[in-house]
């Protein structure tokens, strides 16, 4: 067990992610990062991959980070964090801070996957947080490995021959868990208390931890900014974004979906990135395929 004390953030108008950042209105990632820092407290050092979060929080000479922060490149957040962690150890400062590595879905599951795998495999005492907004939002909504099936992005457009993204969302939590790490969790900005609990739990465990937080992007998902929480909630309630914890390889806790089941249409129809599925009768078949993805998740994780 760790000897680092986790302190609660100061109760004031400012959170550990200071306002004045330039995230879009209703940004789920800004909210997720605020919640993660709030739960982690001030005795941390954070790294971040290139991406929206880094760009909207660190426009020199300003920074929104109230905790020590380092950004290096797109694909090396996990490796930089590993460097921070071993340096603290080598300098005898390991009780000074917990290390949290961050990245978006592209920086985590695509270009940063190798560095993340290395970090997880080597057993560093680091919590890796992936803010999953399901595409390369910073560069203009291009498809990533975590973009869901049939989702329209600027590089997986719908057209005569296309329903959008042809591939299923990469099962990143399982990949992380396959490293035999002590803790893997998914979460959603719709459930802030759950994020807080999971961050605190993760930081109480020594070793590598992986957390993936569903973070709606109003711009990329073409949803209304005020609906960010509603959209996130529906993803969980339909079973499309299963919320669970995997401890030492076993699923130990899940968030149940609604009874009766919420059909995936409820989630899809409030987002422009799925609007093409509602424009023709053939789209119904595609929606059925998405329903099957949700049903498989519900069965796999026992969400019903």
């Amino acid at each position: 067990m760790s000897t680092t004390t986790l302190t609660a953030p100061k109760e004031q108008s400012c959170t550990l992610l200071a306002p004045g950042h330039t995230a879009c209105t209703g940004c789920g990632e800004a909210l997720a990062a605020k919640l993660v820092l709030g739960a982690a407290g001030t005795n941390i050092i954070v790294t971040d991959a290139t991406g929206c979060l880094e760009v909207f929080t660190t426009k020199f000479p300003q920074s929104s980070w109230e905790v020590p922060f380092i950004h290096s490149l797109f694909e090396n957040s996990a490796a930089v964090a590993a460097g921070v962690e071993v340096a603290l150890k080598a300098l005898g400062r390991q009780n000074e801070a917990k290390v949290i590595a961050q990245g978006g879905d592209g920086g985590t599951a695509d270009i940063g996957l190798q560095a993340l795998s290395g970090m997880l495999e080597r057993g560093h005492d680091i919590l890796y947080v992936c803010y999953d907004n399901e595409a390369y939002m910073n560069t203009g909504v291009q498809r990533s490995g975590l973009t869901p099936f049939d989702c329209m992005t600027t590089t997986s457009p719908c057209g005569e021959l296309s329903w959008g993204n042809k591939h299923n969302k990469k099962d990143m939590p399982s990949i992380a868990a396959a490293h035999g790490i002590p803790y893997v969790a998914t979460a959603s900005v719709a459930f802030p208390k759950d994020i807080e609990n999971k961050v605190k739990k993760a930081l109480s465990i020594t070793g590598p931890k992986y957390m993936q937080i569903h973070s709606p992007c109003p711009l990329g998902w073409r949803s209304k900014p005020q609906l960010t929480i509603q959209v996130a909630k529906l993803a969980v309630q339909t079973g499309l974004y299963p919320i669970f914890e995997i401890e030492n390889g076993k699923v130990t806790k899940v968030r149940k979906v609604t009874t009766p089941k919420t059909p995936v249409e409820e989630y899809l129809k409030i987002q422009g990135r799925f609007a093409h599925l509602f424009k023709s009768p053939k789209g119904k078949e595609e929606i059925q395929k998405i329903q099957e993805i949700a049903d498989r998740n519900i069965e796999k994780y026992g969400l019903a």
Binding site: A18, G20, T22, S64
Partner: peptide, 14 residues
């Protein structure tokens, strides 16, 4: 190498 002060984005009135 562009080291910035903590919480300095508060200067930016969004």
């Amino acid at each position: 190498g562009a080291i910035a002060k903590a919480g300095s984005s508060k200067a930016n009135q969004t």
